[in-house]
Design a binder for these strands. Structure first.
Lengths: 350, 350
DNA sequence: TATTAGCACTCGATTCTACCGAGTGCTAAA
DNA sequence: TTTAGCACTCGGTAGAATCGAGTGCTAATA
């Protein structure tokens, strides 16, 4: 996937207050109506007390500077990505509505279950709150130490290695043996595996026994199986909520298809969200997040931390003309609640 | 969700061979072109050596009997659900193409990992093979006996109960305690839990200790947490592959939205697939599967068995004018391979 | 100098009309 | 029973006419 550098906010992004208000009015109305916005409607809605003619000449300037564009002569203006960017950068933080606040509160009061379940449900919540597609990313246990491992006999030739990590994640791996394994052997192998692996991190060098007896072979097999997984960017969990909202956000069926196709590729989604976070942005508009198929999209992200460590992110994907204020407020609120939710769980232990 | 009874195949579904061939030609061409089919093109393509006029009168009959419909006077005919049904019922089994056969073989030769991973990837495979959206359902461990449980200390107040079932599935449950738990206590609780639970099934009555010491409390907590999950139709796993294909299959954005909205609801998808299987069908066309939002869809299903026990299903969802022959062949081939894949794993142990 | 009223102009969208032609249903002959 | 022939239907397409929202420019004004 070809990528373009994410735009650096340029310091020269300053408009005099009248231009700014006109731009804002255009963006607001376009977000509302999805139609090009004309000078007269700006004159009517924005509280700049000048005639449409003056606004017209200002709009010419705004277009020259790249904030607005004209679909064709004799149509109104439409914001460019740069226009949206200015709008977003100068947006005073929105607040979430009563009803939504209520929904969030209720959700977190009632939600229970394991981290994965909470994240999956959060994704649905976020999508319902905003009517955009939501993305929830949970970072994996790549750097977590192993707390415990256990080998279980499914049957004589078929063992299951279950590993618990310090972050509470659990993995399972099938181990196939070429000989019949007795219960005693499994227990002993389990014991040795615990001795070897507890406290280590996936991929760390481990001194495996070189003997050729059943137990040693089993231990070697298990360690190999476990470590085989290490190099894959593992445990990254992605939960997509409200993918049907894609069909509401974009009108061209082809655009819908493209966006869905992107969302199907979890790795892409993870790196998209990660990239935006890495750039310190909370919104990426149009071409700012160098994924060409998503040029007509804006992505809002908010990090989620557990105990102060970044451990995931939540995101919203909508059209560039999305309702930034509401969506950002919702994302912020949910990410805060989520952080608090997990920290709360944690606090109970200290 | 309102449901309608699934249509019972009626014994009177017989057309004389000429009508049948005409119907088949109409269906084939409509599937190809998505356009209403006229009598003259049937005369040209179907190998019935009669004039278009004759075909016309036959088509009138077919329409009267409910196999065809006319979008409007002076347009060609389009198959009804009943028409598709006849077509499908009288379809001789298709074969999968060379290239696809190759892809399937390759996939199963290389696929590795746990059941969940295999199912998820299979879903992607199936979708790529057919360019329809695929659904893979794995049945849960609801009836599986517990092979082993282990309680792990995440920290003093925070334990994780990891349970392994006979079918190889693993669950984890957080247990919060109101007192600090020592390592020794966790080990002892783990031992007692194993003694209590091994061999039992989720939801079975278990004699928990009534003492009030730490270990007993821990054991009670853990059992309660584990059993709390039992009533939920648990472990049903759904993997949707190629949801972007929905946007290719239907042209109205609204239809796309509706279908996506259904696919988001896993429980609905599971019951849809299950219902079709229960009726002994392998294809449900249009309104046959009483889900109103899916009237313009056809669903192909094929069961997957492990060791002879039904243990899941794979499905394909497309427009009613989908390429039944190819899609059914692909579904059959993949389900057979999948069954064989899992049985093969099993056979290694006997 | 900045603003504005006025005005000619542009051009997509809408409506209307004419018309084409694929496809039908019917009839009468083979 | 089949078929050639034919009048008829009606959605789709192409043009023409029109509409009107919105523009850019100019000249007058504060």
């Amino acid at each position: 996937m070809a990528r373009r550098a994410i735009r650096q906010p340029s310091p020269a992004d300053d408009l005099d207050s009248r231009k700014a208000r006109i731009l804002e009015a255009v963006v607001r109305e376009h977000i509302d109506t999805a139609q090009p916005v004309g000078s007269s409607s700006v004159a009517a809605t924005s509280h700049v007390a000048v005639s449409s003619a003056t606004i017209r000449s200002e709009m010419v300037a705004l277009e020259r500077e790249g904030y607005l564009a004209q679909p064709h002569t004799s149509a109104g203006r439409v914001p460019t990505d740069k226009g949206y960017r200015y709008f977003v950068d100068h947006l005073q933080a929105g607040v979430v509505g009563e009803a939504q606040q209520q929904q969030i509160k209720e959700f977190f009061a009632n939600v229970r279950g394991e981290v994965e379940d909470v994240l999956a449900q959060t994704s649905t919540l976020l999508s319902r709150l905003t009517s955009y597609t939501s993305v929830v990313v949970g970072t994996g246990h790549a750097e977590s130490a192993i707390l415990s491992t256990q080998l279980v006999n499914l049957d004589a030739r078929h063992q299951l290695l279950v590993t618990v990590f310090a972050d509470g994640s659990v993995t399972k791996h099938s181990v196939l043996s070429t000989f019949d394994v007795s219960h005693v052997e499994v227990v002993e192998a389990s014991r040795q595996l615990n001795a070897l692996l507890i406290g280590t991190v996936l991929g760390a060098r481990v001194q495996v026994p070189s003997r050729t007896d059943h137990v040693a072979t089993l231990v070697r097999e298990a360690v190999a199986t476990l470590h085989a997984e290490a190099p894959t960017i593992d445990g990254e969990q992605v939960f997509i909520g409200g993918s049907s909202k894609v069909a509401e956000s974009f009108d061209g069926v082809e655009t819908v298809r493209q966006v869905l196709a992107i969302l199907e590729q979890e790795l892409l989604v993870v790196s998209l969200v990660q990239d935006i976070l890495d750039q310190g942005l909370s919104v990426a508009i149009g071409s700012e997040h160098g994924f060409e198929p998503l040029v007509s999209c804006a992505v809002i992200v908010a990090p989620v931390t557990i105990d102060g460590h970044p451990s995931g992110a939540i995101g919203l994907l909508g059209p560039t003309r999305m309702k930034y204020s509401e969506a950002m407020a919702a994302a912020r609120a949910v990410s805060a609640q989520l952080t608090q939710h997990f920290d709360g769980e944690d606090r109970a232990n200290h």
